[in-house]
Structures are given as C-alpha cells and as structure tokens.
Design a binder for these strands. Sequence first.
DNA 1: TATTGTTATACTCTATAACTATA
DNA 2: TATAGTTATAGAGTATAACAATA
Lengths: 172, 172
Amino acid sequence: MAEQARYEELIRQFSAFGAVRRELGRILPSDCPSGSAAVLTLLGRHGDMRMSKLAELLAVDMSVTSRHVAHVAGRGWIERSPDPADKRSRILRLTPAGRDRIDELTRRTCQMLAERLSDWTDDEVGQLTQLMARLRASFDDSRTAHPESRTPTAPVLERSPDRSTRTPAITT
Amino acid sequence: MAEQARYEELIRQFSAFGAVRRELGRILPSDCPSGSAAVLTLLGRHGDMRMSKLAELLAVDMSVTSRHVAHVAGRGWIERSPDPADKRSRILRLTPAGRDRIDELTRRTCQMLAERLSDWTDDEVGQLTQLMARLRASFDDSRTAHPESRTPTAPVLERSPDRSTRTPAITT
DNA sequence: TATTGTTATACTCTATAACTATA
DNA sequence: TATAGTTATAGAGTATAACAATA
C-alpha cells in the first residue's frame, strides 16, 4: 500500500497523459478516429468475436461499441455476419481492407513514438508498458472481484453495482 | 531506440488506459467533471496564473481553457481578476471554496486508487508515476524542439507547425 | 422473462474560426 | 499589426434509456 502523496502524484500524471493521447490522436486518418482504431486493433489482436465480447475488451457500453462498429463496417473494414448459434448475435471479422487500415495505423503511431521516444531504451519502453498493463489489470480485477472480500478499511463510495458492458435493463 | 514490437505493445496499453480514466471519471462530483478538476488542481499546484499559462499547462487550446475556467468561476471556485500590467489579461486565483473542492477531489481519487492498487508497493506506484512523467516530457520536448535538429531517418508526417495553445490567427 | 444488439438523446472534451479589447 | 481572451459551431467519445428481435 502506497502513501497518499504517491497517489496524488500519480493522479497528476494521469491527467497530464491526456496531452499524449491527443497528440497521438492528431496523426490518425480523419476517417479513422480513435474509436474506430480501437475496434480494428482489438479484432486484429484477438480475432473474430461477437459485439458483446468486443464491448468487454473496449470496456465501454455496448451502445458505444455498436456505434464504433457501425462506422468501421460502413467503411468496409469489417464484416458483420449473423451467428448461426444465436440469431440475435453478430460475428465481427476483419476484411483485407481492414487489415490494410491496421497496418497504416501501426505505421503512423510507431513512427511518432520512434520520434518522440528516440532517447528511450527498449527496456524502458517495456517497463512502462508492463506497469500500464498491470494498472489496467488492477482496475479490471476490482470490477470483477467480490466487493465483500476486500478490505473493510476502504469502504466503497458510490461504486456502481458491478457494471458490465451494458446499461442495466429496466425490469417492468 | 526501442524495437517496433515494443511500440505496438505500448500503444495497446495507451488505448486500454481509457478504461482507467473513465473509471476515475465516474467518481467525480457531477458539477465538477474532469476539465474543471484539472483547472483546480493545476491552480492548486502552481499558484495564481494567467489564462494563457493555464492553457499551456493543460496542453489544450485557449478556447477550451476558457470554457473550463468559466465553469469553475461560475461555481465560485476561482476568481478572475484583471491583470494591472496588461488589461487584456486575467489572473486566476483559487477561492477557499475552490480549495475545499480540491480536497474533496483528492479524497475521492486517492480512495479509489488505494482500493484498486492495494497490492502495489509505494515504490511501484512511484515507478509508474516517474515513467508517465517522462513520457509526457518526451512529448513536450518534441513539441518545442527545432524539427530540423532531429534525426532525418524519421521524417515528420503531417505534424502541425509548432502548435501552441491557440488557433493560429488569420493574418489578413 | 432475459439477452443481444441498435438507436435516440444528452453531456463532456476538444479544435477551428471569428470576434472584442488591448498592446 | 499582433496578442489575450471569449464565444459559436462542429465533431468525437461516452452513458442512459427505450426499442426490436431472439432465446
């Protein structure tokens, strides 16, 4: 457990990270903003999947996922085929054009990183990557974990009741 | 200089970081969203300053800064007094109510971090903080540095011509 | 009745451009 | 003519809620 001052510094860096994010966003093609890019890269990384799975990986509401997916499908970068096992569901799959788009995105972003991080060693880049991965995991875990199994010294404040990837349905 | 695969992994973590950011955003008071919180914490950290200085620290356009500042001023969390040295300028200063708001924000965010990062050591939190600070610095540096002094093997692609904190004026 | 996905609406953040007041 | 700040407008990301089709 770290001291409070550590947390305050970390929060400041989280906020400052927005500048990096915006800078990277500026080099994206105008027809492929960050939401579209995330959909493509996740499909490239994890292979074909359903909407609900993609929403989980994006960690956003399914409605948001639906919009992003509609955009990339409209550009011909993915296909949405009906799931034979469940007609409500749709399977998402990259098209060759989608793979080309990913290559282009990778090229642009890696070029910018190579430029900006030219004085970083391979190992330092790896360290940051690892710590950010663990950060994400730490947040994911607590979203999934049983709340009652955690330390009672840190009472949960206004935490939404186990949000998943969708708005809670109204049971009428 | 790191290998391309390293950059690709790092980019993935950048994208995934959005989940952390959104999670932290959810615990903010509804009348104090992240833009307002950033204004308050920067003023608390760096003391009184002009709009243009704040825009630089936020790394967003002055128009954006103006909106955020108007919001927090409307809530009485800061004061905008005219700069005696330059009547075009305004000096921003936290009010006692603004300081209270910062305390509340700090309390909430630190509580969430303490909960989520309960198994991180003080040192690990410090490492992540340091690496993110350096990341931000690396991006800042290249924004300021002379483009011609950088390696010619990485030609600058579509980079905006030394953007500052404002939309370039149209010289008629 | 519950789940998968879509759509409508609203809110926040951001950038561009035009405008005012001052330098 | 240039700079400090404001405002209008537009676009992207996101969440909530209501909806249709299927399980």
